[in-house]
Simulated assay, not measured.
Amino acid sequence: MHGTDSAGHPAETGEGDPVRPVIAVVGPTGSGKSDLGVSLALALGGEVINADAMQFYRGMDIGTAKISVAERRGVPHHLLDIMDVTEEASVSRFQEQARTLIAQIRSRGRYPILVGGSGLYVRAALDVLEFPGTDPALRAALERELEETGLDALRLRLRAVDPVSADRLGDGRRVVRALEVHGLTGRPFSSFMPAREYFQPAVQLGLTVERPLLHRRLAERVEKMVGQGLLAEVEMLADRGLREGRTAGRALGYAQFLRVLDGASTVPAAAEETVVATRQFARRQLTWFRADPRITWLDWNDPDLTARAAAAILEQ
C-alpha cells in the first residue's frame, strides 16, 4: 500500500520519486469511462491516454462517441486522432506509445490515466506482455488460403498446433494472426498471453451498469449518433478510404452504415443492427474484464463515484 502526504498525493519513495500508479478506467461501452477519466485527472492531477482502438482514427467522432474538446475540460488527452482510417491499428505499436506516454506523464509528477474498453490494448499497456513480430508475406499467403479454403479449414490447421487459440478465436483475421505467429516463432499464439502481472504499479477501476439500463443507454446512444449525422460522417470517411481500412472499416456503426451508402440497407435497419452489435460487444467486454480479479468495480451512477474511485487509487 502506498502512503499519501497531507494533500492526498502519493508519498515519495526513498529515491525521492513519488509512487504514482498507472490508473486504468475500464468497463463496457456506454458506462461513462471518459467522464470518470476526466474527473479523476482533475481531482488527482493527471493526463488521459486513450485505450479505445477506434478513437485512434481521425474523423471517427460521432460513431465512437469520442470525447469532445469541451468535455475534456482542459485535461490533456493522448492517442486520440493519430491515424487515418486506411491505417491498421497495432496493439504492439500502441504498447510502445502508451508506455512512452506513461513515463512522460509520471516524470511530470502526474497520474497517467488509461481510459478505454479495448481489453487487449489495456492489458498491453499495463501488463508484462510480449508481442511477436509480423511477416507481411506469410500473412498474405495465409489470407489467400483463408479466402480459398475458408475459415473452418484454417481453424482445423490451427487446432493441430494451438488448440487453445483454435477454441478461443472465432474470426478469420485472428486465426490468420495465430497461424502467422506460430509460423514465425514456432510457439502457440496462446503462449504469448501469460499470467496477469503489472509491468509497473497500476490500479484498474471498472464501471458497472445494470444490464437493462446499459441496453437502454446503448440504444439511446445509437439514436443520438444517427441524429448527430453518423451517416454523413461515414460518407465523408468512405471518401477517405474507410472501406479499405482493415481496422476502421469494421468498427461498430461504420460497417453497418456503409451498407446504407451502398444501397444494401436503410438507416433504421442499420441503426438497429448497430444497437444489437454494440450490445454483443459490451457483453464481450464484460466477459474480458470480469476475468481480471485485479479490477475494483464501481457503480457508474454512484453520486460519489469520483471520490470513491480516488480513494481506491490512493489506498493501493
Rank of each mutant, 00 (worst) to 15 (best):
V25F: 14
L36R: 02
R177E: 14
E71P: 05
H78K: 03
W297T: 09
A310E: 00
E210Y: 00
D81V: 03
V276I: 15
I82K: 00
D152T: 14
P112Q: 00
L151D: 03
P268A: 02
L286H: 14
N301R: 03
A248M: 04
L126V: 12
E244T: 13
L156E: 14
A311Q: 14
P112D: 02
A153T: 12
P112K: 03
P163W: 06
P268L: 10
R211A: 13
E197P: 12
H182V: 06
A98C: 09
W300L: 11
G27H: 01
G263W: 02
R106F: 00
P194T: 05
F289G: 10
L129T: 02
T296S: 15
P132W: 00
P201A: 01
G3L: 03
G117V: 15
Q228A: 13
G229R: 13
V161L: 09
A270T: 05
G249Q: 01
L79A: 01
W297N: 10
A125H: 10
A232Y: 05
P201L: 06
G170W: 00
S165G: 10
L258W: 02
A310T: 11
A24E: 05
I295P: 04
E244D: 15
V19Y: 13
L120G: 12
G30V: 03
V164P: 01
D52E: 13
L242K: 07
G27F: 00
L154K: 15
G117I: 11
Y111N: 06
L252D: 03
G249N: 07
G32Y: 00
D167W: 05
D35R: 08
Q204T: 14
G45P: 11
L126G: 12
L44D: 04
Q104W: 11
V161Y: 08
P188C: 04
R217N: 12
S190L: 06
P112V: 09
Y198R: 07
R294G: 15
V181H: 10
F257Q: 04
E148L: 12
I82V: 10
G172S: 11
